[in-house]
Design a protein around this nucleic acid. Sequence first.
DNA 1: CAATCAAGTTAGAACCTCTCACATATGATT
DNA 2: AATCATATGTGAGAGGTTCTAACTTGATTG
Lengths: 214, 214
Amino acid sequence: MSTDPSAPQVTPTVTPKAAYHHGDLRAQLIAAVRDLVETHGPDGFSVSEAARRAGVSSAAPYKHFKDRHEILRGVVSEAMDRLRAAMEAGAAAHPHGSLEAVAAVGQAYVDFARAEPGVFRLVFGLTEGHENAPDLLAKGEGCFGVVVKAVAACLGLPTSDPDVQRRAYMLWSFVHGHAFLTIDMKHKVAAARIGDWDYLVTTSRAILALAARA
Amino acid sequence: MSTDPSAPQVTPTVTPKAAYHHGDLRAQLIAAVRDLVETHGPDGFSVSEAARRAGVSSAAPYKHFKDRHEILRGVVSEAMDRLRAAMEAGAAAHPHGSLEAVAAVGQAYVDFARAEPGVFRLVFGLTEGHENAPDLLAKGEGCFGVVVKAVAACLGLPTSDPDVQRRAYMLWSFVHGHAFLTIDMKHKVAAARIGDWDYLVTTSRAILALAARA
DNA sequence: CAATCAAGTTAGAACCTCTCACATATGATT
DNA sequence: AATCATATGTGAGAGGTTCTAACTTGATTG
């Protein structure tokens, strides 16, 4: 049902089939839910409200999504595409193989979390049907792959090198934690504690240097 | 109403007032919700179900909690107490000021996340009434304080030293990210990627060494 | 053109949150 | 001790939510 090969899962490209009665309701619902999640928190969203915003009846969404969870998965999928694109753009803005390219991947990650904290939390807080969604798993690995590529280029090693994998994971978990803590306690601690860019560059250097020594 | 000074917020100590009709319903509700959150995910919980498990009517919980959110906040508060205790116990299991003591704090953190992923996610995914709950903020700072203390002891500096604060934050975000990634992709990546203890010791050493050099 | 299928609609069952009015146990106060 | 005030419970119910079922309508296709 949702595995319709002619309809790309989330990209709002208006396929002939999608532009029908309403005009790509699927994408509009995802956009509405993204908005709701962002403003009312990951739990403060309802299918009814999203349908209301899209101007359709509250039963219409179920023609496009099996579940409320499937809608959320759609939002997550779309968000991960954007996150990955941002990470790649960050790396591309600096010389290939440079330390700055590595740091910029992390910066893009943190920027995303700050710009869309609700969606960010949703992406990494999804529990229902996480294992039933191999595409999300794949996209997660894709994001990790961006880090791995930047690290490999910086160290001059192949991406398959276990040390590259290890350092990339270290960097990722580091940035991931920083991103989360940042959006959690925006009031006081984290935000004022450290300037992002210096922080990320310093950390990246430390972790990569650790690899060189090992 | 919930600011009753004679009743400790979450600790299941049966105060005279609490042991009433039912026998400390408040604590039993929190326990039920903790269980539900753990097994059905942070969203798959309902006040009704918790009340059912505690053997009371579905209106009874509202005598103890204003909201469903307030119940969740209660669960979080209780969980943070346990998390902090675990972190302190981890540090205490090693010589004061040792690198192992620092790593053990992180290990306790990761262990907690693995043992109770649902609750862990809830603790750091809470959005509703986060700012209206200064006690939660304070407990968060308390947990951070454990890290700061271990780092300060290891470096032989006062806890107020900005470098100590900085390294503690680095370590915390590191461990936080690792914990999250671990429970997110238990299937494949993180779990098999790295053995925890070596990982934490190595990382702690690297970050503290970085401080010594700076 | 008719058949078919996709994408909407309304109606409704089951559930959840939270409130209100009422009932009852307990401790405090005269 | 009798009574009062209050804390803690119950049942009924309003309003919102998820999701299904049965029906309608519009587009595509043989």
